[in-house]
């Protein structure tokens, strides 16, 4: 995935079954953000793979004061890339019965 300066990783091991997964997001390179970034730390949140869209979560982060409005897109993209990877992995390795 493209280096957006925002890192998103699984906060817990993916069992391949749950639609809702825990993710952790933090800023690796604040220079890649447009808005001024206040270093808050790593933000952990749950994401529903079936019902939610990454851009929606990014917008909630903006509204919660973690990021500037102008960075919603880059945060959304970072989450989207990680979610796509998780879905891809799940498709390749279905959970055992």
């Amino acid at each position: 995935a493209e280096d957006t300066g925002v890192r998103v990783e699984l906060a817990e091991e993916d069992d391949g079954r749950k639609a809702s997964i825990a993710l952790k997001l933090w800023v690796e390179d604040p220079r890649k953000l447009k808005g001024k970034y206040k270093d808050a730390g790593a933000i952990e949140f749950t994401f529903d793979l079936e019902k939610e869209v990454p851009e929606g979560v990014a917008q909630e982060m903006v509204e919660s004061g973690f990021f500037h409005e102008s960075d919603a897109k880059i945060v959304g993209k970072s989450i989207r890339d990680r979610v796509a990877l998780i879905k891809w992995r799940r498709a390749r390795t279905p959970p055992s019965a």
Binding site: W26, E28, A42, E44, V57, E60, S64
Partner: peptide
């Protein structure tokens, strides 16, 4: 480290904790 919790009006919970220095890029 200390963790804080921020709850968005839509109900989502964000748990914020310090990032280990080893996970940050060199400036």
């Amino acid at each position: 480290g200390a963790t804080t919790q921020v709850v968005h009006s839509a109900g989502r919970r964000f748990i914020v904790s310090p990032v280990p220095e080893s996970r940050l890029k060199e400036p």
